[in-house]
């Protein structure tokens, strides 16, 4: 190890907090949070670890409100969907022309089957879609099964209550987060990709596929794929889910007829709402996977209390992996 590597360890004096760049507040933490003090390097061969303050309080709050809202919105949404488990394009629901339907059919012997039809192709999805078991083990006509809906059994009125309440929480949370990100410059500093980020996108994709995730200083900021994923959710999926939800409202359609034109009709909006819902589910699945493979506890703690540690590059010893 050379001396130049040692020089990269941050000095213990904290700079002015206004002065911190990229939301990083180097090693002022131990005085504030003495409980989990990082290992102090005793000699130049010990792993060098630096703490940064990764997520501000508003970001963390907004994140956990989303954690509460998203599963509830998805599952109460599936409850609502189950009241008419079919999707269409255009303004109307022509029953003979759904693009997706979760049907229930009875065989000649009276056996109940769940049939999922997508663009005219049918699949037997008994037990999962179209027909599935209730908590007593009895098989019933049902779009999505009880264990992915809120409430678990068919109860449209209550599903709507959950959905429309948490929709407000989710939307207000999103608007507050957007406002905060704009004013605090979290948006342009951390979220919107820089041109140089975008130029490195090919390498970033390859690295991710090979599970080579950014380490050291590179891990202190979002990489280009993270930036694209987060801005895609904030500026893409978020507005889409809100606007398609609004388009399903006959009241708002009267106030903003342009919504119907934008999405090609109320039933198209309902279909897009459904697809975007599963895009959210996909995002969360990938997000959780990435959180797990890039240092579960480090990531989790940084979203809980803000602290995130970074192993300095160059100290590539066997004990570098501290998570």
């Amino acid at each position: 190890m050379s001396d130049s590597n040692d020089n990269r360890i941050e000095p213990s004096e904290a700079p002015e907090s206004e002065n911190r760049s990229e939301e990083i507040r180097p090693s002022a933490i131990p005085s504030e949070l003495p409980v989990t003090e990082p290992p102090v390097p005793t000699d130049s061969h010990a792993p060098a670890v630096r703490w940064i303050y990764r997520h501000t309080v508003p970001v963390r709050l907004a994140h956990w409100v989303n954690v509460l809202c998203l599963p509830i919105l998805v599952m109460s949404g599936l409850q609502i969907f189950n009241a008419h488990p079919a999707l269409y394009l255009g303004e109307r629901s022509d029953r003979d022309r759904p693009i997706l339907s979760l049907d229930t059919v009875f065989s000649d012997s009276g056996e109940i089957r769940g049939i999922t039809a997508v663009f005219g192709y049918s699949f037997d999805t008994t037990g999962w879609l179209g027909a599935s078991r209730d908590s007593a083990g009895q098989i019933h006509r049902r779009g999505f099964p009880t264990w992915v809906t809120i409430p678990s059994h068919q109860w449209l009125a209550m599903g709507r209550r959950w959905h429309l309440f948490f929709a407000w929480v989710f939307v207000l949370n999103g608007l507050l987060f957007g406002l905060y990100s704009l004013l605090s410059r979290h948006l342009d500093r951390d979220l919107i990709p820089f041109p140089k980020d975008l130029r490195g996108i090919g390498r970033a994709v390859r690295d991710h596929l090979l599970f080579r995730h950014p380490k050291g200083e590179e891990a202190a900021r979002y990489n280009v794929l993270q930036k694209l994923a987060y801005t895609g959710v904030v500026f893409g999926l978020g507005p889409l889910i809100l606007l398609t939800g609004m388009t399903m409202s006959p009241g708002l359609d009267a106030a903003f007829p342009g919504l119907l034109t934008l999405f090609g009709g109320r039933q198209s909006a309902r279909t897009i709402h459904f697809v975007v819902c599963f895009a959210f589910v996909g995002f969360v699945a990938i997000h959780l996977f990435m959180v797990a493979v890039t240092g579960l506890w480090n990531n989790f703690r940084s979203m809980l209390i803000g602290r995130y540690h970074i192993a300095e590059l160059g100290v590539d010893h066997h004990d570098q992996e501290t998570n």
Binding site: P71, I72, M75, W147, I150, P151, S152, H153, W155, M158, R161, W162, L164, F165, A167, W168
Partner: peptide
């Protein structure tokens, strides 16, 4: 969690909170 949501749905007070929306 799912059982909790069902219990809340059947409670006296929680649907009222949801209904405030």
């Amino acid at each position: 969690l799912l059982a909790g949501c069902d219990k809340l749905s059947r409670s006296e007070w929680f649907p009222g909170i949801l209904g405030s929306a």
